[in-house]
């Protein structure tokens, strides 16, 4: 247990080593948030609300959605694919595999450390901007509590997806491009920029069969209060089902992949 804490601590410390990097990333996130919100202001210009699959959507709800989505992105994002890609390509993965700890536990702990750093140094500025510059809605403690549970599950789902994609590097050596594919799939079907409620019927149906909407769309629905209690429980249960499915897939891939692994270099 203490080993996990040490890894979390070390990766947190690694994060704060590069101060300029931290500042620039905060700046980048703020700019991206401003662009998205301005876009929604323009789109909503003449109308009080917009029609969607789940009823009328107000501008203030859309702004809140965008802010929560940006925060979610900062909190759940991980560098698992980039890290694995790099480790496999350079052979550095050997150094993780000689430790009495599973690779997944090492990567998972590293991710928690980075997340901790992100929550403290990157999400706070966004939250402050949301509260003071825009009409960021606080929608009650109960919603917040369920949102946090759903957000945790979302982070696990995203981690599992990244880990699975990363493990395919055992066959293909380099996987960062697949990471881009995954990112884009999540961007579209997860609803990180455009909520699924604005999707055309066909795309909306496709997204129902994919795990991606459980990363952004459904947790944010819970926060904004667009689902009732029954819906909330359903979402969380479905998240768990997806986590179970992804863990099974990951175990199978690991079992075959580890035999394929070629440690590159000397």
């Amino acid at each position: 247990m203490k080993a996990y804490i040490e890894i979390i601590r070390n990766s947190f410390l690694t994060g704060i080593t590069y101060r300029v990097n931290t500042l620039l990333r905060i700046f980048g996130a703020v700019v991206s948030l401003l662009v998205q919100i301005s876009l929604w202001y323009v789109l909503f210009q003449s109308k009080p609300d917009a029609t969607s699959h789940i009823g009328a959507i107000k501008l203030s709800e859309m702004v809140t959605y965008t802010i929560v989505s940006t925060l979610t992105h900062i909190i759940i994002s991980n560098q698992v694919i980039m890290r694995l890609d790099n480790k496999i390509k350079t052979g550095q993965i050997a150094m993780d595999l000689i430790k009495p700890m599973s690779l997944k536990a090492i990567l998972g702990s590293e991710m928690i450390g980075t997340t901790l750093y992100n929550v403290i140094f990157r999400s706070l500025p966004i939250l402050l901007i949301g509260i003071f510059l825009f009409s960021f809605q606080f929608s009650g403690w109960l919603n917040l509590a369920f949102f946090i549970i759903a957000l945790f599950n979302a982070a696990v789902i995203f981690f599992e997806l990244s880990y699975i994609v990363g493990l395919t590097g055992f066959w293909y050596t380099t996987v960062w491009h697949m990471g881009r594919v995954l990112d884009n799939a999540i961007r579209v079907f997860g609803g990180s920029f455009i909520p699924l409620w604005f999707f055309p019927e066909s795309l909306y149906h496709i997204s129902m069969f994919l795990p991606f909407r459980f990363i952004y769309y459904t947790p944010i629905l819970i926060y904004i209060g667009k689902v009732d209690m029954k819906g909330v429980i359903e979402i969380i249960l479905q998240q768990w089902v997806w986590i179970a499915i992804l863990i099974i897939i990951e175990k199978v891939i690991w079992k075959f992949g580890i035999k394929k692994l070629v440690i590159q270099g000397g």
Partner: peptide, 9 residues
């Protein structure tokens, strides 16, 4: 040719 130390800390 490799290290198992944490590079930045």
């Amino acid at each position: 040719q490799r290290t198992q130390l944490w590079w930045d800390i």
